[in-house]
Design a binder for these strands. Structure first.
Lengths: 233, 233
DNA sequence: CGGGGCCTTGACGTGATTCAATAAAGGTGG
DNA sequence: CCACCTTTATTGAATCACGTCAAGGCCCCG
């Protein structure tokens, strides 16, 4: 599909308004902002914005999957985050420099709502009671990145995979069934691993009886055992 | 020394006021905030706050050096950032959860000014024109962390060391002389390397004629050549 | 049936860590 | 000022985890 902009229907409107960032906004201000917003369709692999490009808008993911990627020397790429449906992303860029620090590419055919910064910032200036919400959001991302930093720099492939799987689990219970949020190669990149290594770790876990794998669907019989395995790995 | 709190003199006051975060503050608001602040002395190795500890204050480093560290399984530790004199740190924690996401330890005997969050937040609430400054600061840290993520996950030891040295250089000129901001083991940890590996990379650079090393003092005859070496490394 | 993603598996190479020994520098007290 | 001890830095050799390269299997879709 081409990226044919189109207007926002009320169903979509509701989904966006439910995000923490917008839940405190007045109907009026929010409505005015959305009038400036447009929907865009993205093909698989299509790039929404490039690293270093001037940032004019942020996005809400309606359908599909967006990968936030930073590029390194020699074409290697690391997925900083895999954006899921109903997430806002790139809203934090508004406040500095105005350049995207990462690239956004569609990991699946996707639909996003594009929300321009200009009216967003204007509203924020006029309603400064909304700023604490923004600060909290930036702060959350900061924590997320610090956690990522720790995982990348101090944990082995085994530990990273295990932590990641455990993070996907609903609050610690018994045998849980989870499904990977993206194709395995993307998850591997998200974890800073090659697909091969990721596959091998999964294989090891399978042979240790800590994991059942069926395509993108994983079963963890005993999360606690997995945690222990990671710690001693 | 024990951490004997004491009052703030006017010299110190000026140094703090010069930070971007406070430069827009009114004399009155700033003065009132500083009345709640106290100085603390830290011995080498002393811990200012622990990871996960409830956050009640942020800090300004007057003298010495503070390392922000995250701890991993098995006692390994990664230095997220080496704080230098005249820097503020941990101010971003105010807006979420209220727990420190890292540990702060003195890499040298140090002096800090401890600024409690409560009055700081209260002033911010009352003067919302100050918030954009905060947002910009959080945004900067976000960019910093994303850059770190890229370095850690996609660059070799050689590349990381070279980028780091080049970052220390004043804007690209000819032969520059720089000095490491901390002992080599701390810099290594900051780069996600062991001291041994760091030492070896420095040795390699020395033998290639790209670097002269004298204790903590480094000379880079040709920054551009160093950049090329990193890219092809 | 055939082609193309996607994933898995094996053999191999390599860069970084680990372990260990040594050297150099800094601090302390006699 | 020197002897002594501690901390910091360097260097070498052995090891290991992960990446790379290459082959093969599986599944979906035409």
């Amino acid at each position: 599909m081409m990226s044919a902009p189109s207007a926002i229907d009320s169903n979509v409107r509701t989904r966006i308004q439910r995000t923490p960032l917008f839940s405190a906004w007045s109907e009026g201000a929010f409505g005015a902002l959305l009038e400036q917003a447009r929907m865009r369709q993205l093909d698989l692999g299509e790039i929404l914005f490039h690293e270093g490009e001037e940032a004019r808008a942020f996005y809400f993911l309606l359908a599909g999957e967006i990968d936030l990627i930073t590029l390194g020397a020699g074409g290697r790429e690391k997925i900083v985050e895999i954006i899921q449906v109903d997430d806002l992303f790139a809203e934090a860029v508004a406040f500095l420099g105005g350049r995207y620090p990462v690239q956004a590419a569609a990991g699946l055919a996707s639909t996003v709502v594009e929300i321009p910064f200009a009216p967003f910032m204007a509203t924020l200036q006029g309603h400064q009671e909304l700023m604490p919400q923004m600060l909290a959001r930036l702060s959350m991302r900061l924590h997320y990145l610090i956690k990522e930093l720790r995982h990348l720099s101090m944990e082995s492939a085994n530990q990273r995979v295990a932590s990641y799987l455990l993070d996907l689990c609903p609050a610690g219970g018994e045998c849980v069934e989870i499904s990977l949020p993206a194709k395995k190669a993307a998850v591997a990149a998200r974890l800073g691993l090659t697909p091969e290594t990721f596959s091998r770790v999964l294989g090891r876990l399978r042979k240790a009886g800590l994991l059942r794998v069926d395509k993108r669907c994983l079963q963890i019989p005993d999360p606690q055992a997995l945690r222990r395995w990671a710690d001693s790995s």
